[in-house]
Simulated assay, not measured.
Amino acid sequence: MTRRSRAHQSTPGNEQAILEAALSLAVTAGYEGTTMAEVARLSGLPVGSVYWHFNNKEQLFAELIEYCFEQWKVDHTGPTNRDLLRRSIAGSAGGSTDPGNRAEAFWILALLFALEKRLADNLARQKYLEVRKQMFELMVQRVEPQIPAAVLARDPDFGRKMVVLGRALTDGFYIAASAGDDVDFAEFADLSASAVEALIARHAAAALEEDETPDAAPDE
């Protein structure tokens, strides 16, 4: 029986080195510009080791998206909705302009998977869309407890609507960062958070007003 080379054995250290190398290349070269040979060169491993861990580039990028998602779940937490939105906009979109902040910068590339229709059957694109749904549900779980109960009683989908709004804002700022717009992301993160808070407060006031309005007397 042929023994497998130790250099090609699957180890957590080798796998992480490959993922980090792919992430660095993806940020600068994009999906099309990233090759398995370049990933091997940057990781310092034989190209055979890269193929040992990942059958092809699609599988590598699919695993890379999952790898980034796990980091996103750790980083994108906060005690308030304002903190969550600030981390999404100022942390992710703003961080994506910093070449050293590769984990955040990668999400611009991930967003491109959603926009690039010719990659419809691409495994990495399918993984991104799957992860995007998971991100949405996770954010709903974090946002809803901070919304007044009266607002949710009035509109049970209000929390989900706020997450849709927050995601749309974040996606827009991702694109702005990718285009190189001269934007103070921290400032706009605070403006966006203030707008969302004002919207929640308005709905809370409307719910309170409804509760305090006496029912009309029945006609005799």
Rank of each mutant, 00 (worst) to 15 (best):
L111I: 06
E116H: 13
V143S: 03
A204R: 03
G13Q: 14
W52D: 15
L111G: 12
A110K: 01
R167I: 00
Q126P: 01
L60Y: 07
A103R: 06
T97P: 01
H203M: 15
F158L: 09
P148E: 10
N81L: 12
P99W: 00
S24W: 00
S43F: 01
V27C: 07
A177F: 05
A186Y: 00
Y174P: 01
W72V: 02
E187N: 02
A26E: 08
A193H: 00
H8Y: 11
V39Q: 08
Y174F: 15
V27N: 04
T97V: 06
R41T: 12
A40K: 06
Y67R: 11
E197P: 04
A114C: 07
I18E: 07
F61S: 09
R118E: 12
L199C: 08
L45M: 09
D157N: 12
N55M: 03
Y128W: 15
E210Y: 03
E38K: 13
A177V: 00
I65V: 15
F188E: 12
A37D: 14
P145V: 05
V27Q: 05
N55P: 03
T170W: 09
A90L: 08
A26P: 01
A90P: 03
E210K: 07
E104H: 10
H53T: 11
G30W: 03
L60G: 11
G91F: 04
T77Y: 04
D215N: 11
R82H: 05
T80W: 03
S24G: 14
G91P: 05
A124S: 13
A217K: 11
A216N: 10
Q141C: 08
F61P: 05
Q71P: 00
A206K: 11
M36N: 11
V27K: 00
